[in-house]
Structure formats: structure tokens, C-alpha cells
Design a protein around this nucleic acid. Sequence first.
RNA 1: GGACGCUUAGCUCAGUUGGGAGAGCAUCGCCCUUACAAGGCGAGGGUCACUGGUUCAAGUCCAGUAGCGUCCA
Length: 949
Amino acid sequence: METKFNPSSIEQALYQAWEEKGYFKPSGQGEAYCIMIPPPNVTGSLHMGHAFQQTIMDALTRYKRMDGYNALWQMGTDHAGIATQMVVERKLAAENGPSRHELGREKFIEKIWDWKAESGGTITKQMRRLGNSLDWERERFTMDEGLSNAVKEVFVRLYQDDLIYRGKRLVNWDPKLQTAISDLEVENKDKQGSIWHLRYPLADGQKTATGHDYLVVATTRPETMLGDSAVAVNPKDERYQDLIGKEIILPIVNRRVPIIADDYVDMEFGTGCVKITPAHDFNDYEVGKRHQLPLINVLSPTAEILVSGEVYFTDGTANTQEKAEIPENLQGLERFAARKAIIAQLETEALLEKIEPHNNKVPYGDRSGVVIEPLLTDQWYVRVAEMAKTATEAVENGDIQFVPKQYENMYFSWMRDIQDWCISRQLWWGHRIPAWYDESGKVYVGRNEEEVRKNHNLSADIELSQDDDVLDTWFSSALWTFSTLGWPENTDDLKTFHPTDVLVTGFDIIFFWVARMIMMTMHFIKDENGKPQVPFKTVYVTGLIRDEEGNKMSKSKGNVIDPLDMIDGISLDALVEKRTGNMMQPKLAEKIKKRTEKEFAQGIEAHGTDALRFTLTALASTGRDINWDMKRLEGYRNFCNKIWNASRYVLMNTEAQDCGQEGGETELSLADKWILGRLQETIQTTRQHIDNYRFDLVAQTLYEFSWNQFCDWYLELTKPVLNEGSEIQQRGTRQTLVTVLESLLRLMHPVMPFITEEIWQRIAPLANANGETIMQQPYPVYQAQLVEESAIADVEWLKQFILGVRNIRGEMNISPNKPISVLLRNVSANDQRRLEQNKNFLQSLAKLESIEVLPAGEKGPASATAFVGDMEILIPMAGLIDKDAELARLQKAIDKAEKEVARVVGKLSNEKFVNNAPAHVLDKEKAKQAEAESALHKLKEQFNEISAI
RNA sequence: GGACGCUUAGCUCAGUUGGGAGAGCAUCGCCCUUACAAGGCGAGGGUCACUGGUUCAAGUCCAGUAGCGUCCA
């Protein structure tokens, strides 16, 4: 073995072997355990969030697999509608190729499939590097045939159940991408803007209570005034009582619109008069519905002013009687240009009262980055109220549990106000809506055109055209847990693995995905009693991985870290190139370069997959974002190295030697019994923490045991036995060395798959463990009979002894190499026994030349002292220890002890405490007092003795 | 404006019926001792954001304040 752990030399070969041998497939035996991967974008690449969540999923899967479950981690990818379509459009533009529209739908979709073929392997290759034990043979894609069929089936059935409908509604329209987007894809940003106060002249010579012949309305979007269909006031507002039911003349277009009363209006805000534009504002849309106001659309899909307004009834049907004309000079203007023109015109007509600065919430498309326009369009919707009710109940009654629990509130609050889900998107990449129209516009829904014709008796000469739109990507991913298992067929997989066990995901998609998955699954999948099945029993919600300063990682900030760069390392130049290449805003490149040079002056070293995974595990405390910390990664790389070298030590002392595999008498040392007991505790704690999803504590437990117990103490304690012990003692210790290490490797394997497998291959035969791979070995089980309390107490005594000597050595600058002699005072029978049993350990670990027990009553020479309970260890000062240094050391200890005594005495002299505290607390405090006082007394005595020299 | 979360050592974070304030990294000192210098041994370091309350006892429970963050309107 090399003296340093070199992950790059082992990882890929091990993974390839695992995959080839089919270890990732469910065993087909035992209780089922299933995790569905949140499908990453097929054309995307791996980021830290993926690495984090996948590490957790893999650890869980490996744990359950080892624990005898029929474990499946289902692989799959998502077609990511808008994102992918945009990437390909940009790519075409960059190559000066034809635009999407020049190519036409079919050709363009071909280009996307080409792109998928080209880039689709990137992320799966990266995921393999993480060591993920996904079942690759079952890999699915949301656009593959099976899943597409599931999508069609769901759509048709929902339509038949009247849970899908089509209608003209106000939607969030992205004028750049020219598609509807869901409100979840809208990001509201605070923007410093203006609010314009406009005068709307009253019709028919009316006057306000204050004598004006106009009303003043305040608006942040003056350009929409072309589509106003009312002015509203609060019904309780006394200022405008007389005007309710009267009309104003809308400036510029000279249309008469009514003055209405509605509670929606805030009397305190502005003048208390609000313009109502139902076709261009969500609140106004609701007001319009209540008052049966016409909806007047004045914007095109590209957000330019129409030639004339389109008027609709509130049910979305065209209103051909009313007209909404638009002056020629405004026609075709882009929305912000139109705003300027309208303001200018109002100003010249003296209808602009004032402009005030105003903080607006402005909606932006999170993909396109442009301002979203509420726009009236024909869209498909899922009626979600009923499904939402069932889905809410599943969480309320505990069928589905969120970890951490507080996310349930987030879920409930979203579910309470849930709106019908707009599922149509005006894109080309995605599942085309299975609806056809005849020439009159009548709609027919079916699995395909043939079925539609058959079901509706439509002869071949009737022209049918399929709906141009595709479904929201989340529509197909909402079916993920069951479509991947073969639904709508009632497959064995479905029966075996559904409901799945855990969903591991970020809180940011609880609404997008988790909620919708629960709704869809419970609607379509029932158990044998007809009860809706949940998609998963637990939702483990992870935090976000941020950079070291707590900023979100994003390409535009240039602070993205590729998990593979942590694993393999990367030079500074390559990293800068990666972060600044292919930028949408080249301006930022210089800034990013500087930042990167500062953050990673030496580039990034290789750390290996296991270190990365262990770090992510250690940082996974629940309910909290994670600030990435390179130092932490480095620390855990060192940990891997520690494991490597500890194993090297074990192998050096056991390979080709008698470890008791063939039987033979053995004698276990105190240390052997102790480490076996500590291992049991570690096994128990580790399991508990995994079961509670406390991966940070899992990491901590494994680290503590491996380094602070196994390496620091146990391996050291084996040295005297292996050097000087009898044959049967050596055999016992060798056996313990290999069994403990072999168990520890299995215990760590779910988190650190590679290093544990590599070492296990060599250690297993020595420990009589048979099998081809650690992956299929049983997960360690707590064995109470291996915990020997007396052994643990004895070793604690031993450690105290050694630490006492080391402390004096350290404080007194006595070289660790220099053997010293100690005297013992006040030695009890128990001390005497322990001393005899552990003399060799003491001599070896504390580097002692001799240990001499002073006869009772004898004081011994002037010495530095350490305590082990009541027993005192004396290190004679002569020639070794400086008087003043020892006095200083003692004074420090005295100060500390005095503080402790004062604290405990204070507590115990408090009558109320003594009267009220439970007995066990009281006893504990009393014991502490006795101990502290005795220690203080001894220290003072010692101090006096030394100072008297 | 509403809801939730956070504030503990220089940094990143644990702290689970209220009873000893912890880890890793960083710092300081001594050591190249045949598993490991990516190491060993030893040491120092905190008014648990602030104020008040409940309690014999509060990092922990309650109320409020401040700062930061996220989601929603």
C-alpha cells in the first residue's frame, strides 16, 4: 500500500466493476426500499446541490441495501422544457444557424434530440463519479415512450373526469419566450419606479365633492389605461358616494367607463380611486369578474400595443359589440415606449397631476429575465381543489412526513391558497397536448388522433389539427414515482416499490414538484382497498449549498463550484476559464476572474470522492443552508488518509499472519475488549442517526470513533501486545484488529464507498468475511454482549494515567522520547490491579522507564503530580523539572479548581436548590463538590511542598 | 405588511423531556517515536445577539428588541 491515500487510483475502476457486476440492481429479496431520484435536467451538468442530495440518497440506499432490503434507487432525467429549448436556440444563434422559426417545429425538435444525444451523457457520467449506486438499467427519461404514454393517459383521464379544462384566463406571460409560465417561475423584485397620478375627466358634467370635474387615479402602469374598463372606489368612501354608477371619459381613447364600488379599493392609498384593467392585472381581473366588466386586451404576445383592443366577456368569450379603439400613434409601440408616449400625451392635455417615486414589486421571468405581462390567453388548466384536499390530508395525518417538520407549514400554506394549475406552455419541446380541433374549433381529447376519430365518429374527411402547445415539464415529473415503475400497466415493480420511501429534495421545489407529485399520485394510484397511495412516506428537505461567504452559487456570480473539481482538482487557469467562458454578460468576466484568483490562488487540489461525500454528509444538519467550506473538505480528506494509514498498519500486522481465521486459542487484551465495546456503541449511535436523517451526526460519530478511539488509542494499545505478547495474546489482538476494522469499514461504507471497498477487499479474508463486495455485506448490528463495562472503565483509568503523564511532559517540555520514572502514591486495591494488568500499556504509551508504588504513608521526593481519581502520579523533579514552571502549572490548576469549588458550593448552599432539585442532580453536585475540594486540597498541598524547596 | 428560520470559540457549525458549553478547522508550544507531517503529543480561547419573565436552575421554555436570511402578499 502507498503511504498516502490516492483516491484517483482506485475510484473509477471500483465503480466500473460494481456497475458491470450489477450490484446496483435491487436484490429481489427482502422488504422493498425505494428512492426516486429527482430527475436532473438531461442536458445539464452536476452542481453542488446535486452532489449533496445524491450523496444522501446514495448513503440511504447503500445502508438499506446492506441491511437486507430489496433496495432500488431509480435513475432518470427530465426534459426541462424551457431550459433545454433555450439552450438549443442559443446554440443555433451562436453558430449563426437558422432560427427556431426558420427551421420549423419538426426540424427544431430534431435539433434538440441531437443536442440531447450529444450532451445527455454529461451528467450521468458525473453522477457515476460520485459513486452513486443508481440502477442504471432502469434509467428513464420524461420524454421516452413509456413516460409519454403515462402523460397522455393522465391527461385524457383527468379531462374525462372534468379535472382538466381549457379556458381564456389571465396568465403570467413571458413576452420574450412567448409562453405562459407558472407563478412559481415568476420572481418578484423590488424596483425603484414611479407612480403616476392621472386625471380622468368625469362624464356628463359631474363634479367631485371637492368641486373637481375629474377623478385622480394612481397607477404604476399607465400604459394599461388603454384597456381600462372601470374606475373603482371603496363603497364606504364618503368622498365618492355620489359618483358611484356615474362614468368618466377615459383620456386618449375617449371611451366611457363606469365608476364602481368595490371593497378591494384601499381608501387610504392615494386618492382612493383605482383604475380597473381586468385584462392586464390579476387583482383587477378579480374585480372585473365581480362586476361583469369587459376584459380589454391591448397588448400583443410580444407586449406591443395592438391596433385595436380585443374585448371579451368575463367568461372569456369574445364580445363583438363593444369596441376599444386605440389611436394610431400608439399602435404597435412596445410597452415601455407606449408608456412614455401616453404620459407625454396626458401631460400636454394637462391630465397628469404628478409623478411620485414608488417602490414597486415587478414580476420577472426567472428564465428570460424580462418583465412578465399578465395576459389573456387560451390555456389548459388542472382543477386542483379536490386533489389538493386529499394531498393535504396525507400530510396532516402523517402518511407523509416532512423532515424537518417545519416545512409542513410551508406545504399547508401553499395548499390552502392553491390556484388551478396552468399546464400548457407555448413551447415546442415537451409533451404535445393530446387534444385536436376540428375546423369549427371544437376540441376533442384522446390518446391519439385515431382514438379521437373513433370515439367521436369523425370521418376521415374531417380535418383535425392537434393543439400546438406542450405540457409544463412539471406535469410529467408529477407522475415520476409511478410512471418510472411502468404505470399505466400494473407492473410488478409498481406493486413492489410503490409507495416509495424517501424523497430527498430542496425546499425550493416543494410547490413545483413535491405538492404536485402528491396530488397526481394520490389521484391515480390506489392500494388494493382503493385507498389513495402516497408517492413517498418521507420528504427529506435539504438546505441550499452556498459559497464560503453565504452567497447563492450562480453562473452570473461566477462562484459555482463543480463537484468534480473538488474530486479531481483543477488549476487556477482552468477554473477561471470554466467560470468566465461562454458568459452571457462578458462584462462580468473580469470581476469573476479576480474573485476566483483570490478565492483559489493555487487552484483546487484533488480531494477524492469519499472526502467530498463525507464533507457533504457532515454539513447536512437539517433545516439550514450550508456555507461551503474548503477547509472542511481538506480536513475530511485528511480523515480518509487517516483511515488509509490505520488500515495499512492493521494489514502490516495481520496479513500473512495468524489472525485466528483457522481457530486457535486467543486471549483478548483489555484494549481489545474495550474497542469491541466502543465499536458496539458506535454502531448503535450511527444507526440511530441515519434513521433520524441526522447525517451530520453520522459523520461526527464515525469520525470520532475512527480517529479519537480507534487510531489514537486502540492502535497504540495494540503495539505492546504485538511486540511483546504471547502467541495467543497476539492472535487475539490481530483478530480484534481485523474484525473491528472490517466492521468499521462496513459501518462507513454508505458514506465513503470507495475507500471502504478498496480496503475491505484486503481485510475481509483476514476477518473471515466472505463475499465479493462490501456493498452486499450486512450492515453492522449492535451486539450488547460485546460491551464489557469493566473493560471500558479500566481503559478510561488507563487513559487518565497516560494523559496525566503526557500533560506534565507537555507542560514541562520534557521530550516525548525521554523515558521517565514515576512513583505512585495513595494506590487503592483497584488501582493496584489495574496497574498490574496494564503495566506494559503504560510503559509503552506514556514512555515510562519504571513505575514504583510508594508504601502507604510515604511522601516521596519533590515531584510534579497528576491525579487518577485519588491516586497520585509523581514525576520526581530532580534534573527534569524547573521549580517555577511547576509552580506556575500548579497555580493554573488551583485557579481552575477554585472556580469549580466556588460554583458547586454556591449551588449547594442555596437552600432552594437543595430543596427542589431532584435527588440525582443533587447527588451529582455533591459528588462534584467532594471531588473538586479534594483536588483543590491536593493541589494546594503540592504547591506548598514545592515552594518550600 | 404576513409567515418561518437564524444569531454559541477567530472561521464553519453541533448542542433532542431545562441540571457538566462542545466538534472540526485556525492559533500557540514541543516532537521527522518504523500506520499516518494530509501526522503525533500538549495548551490557550466563549457575558451562548440584546432585554425582561418563568424556574431552585435557562444556550435550552415564554414575551419583547435588534440584525441577517428565506418564502408569501
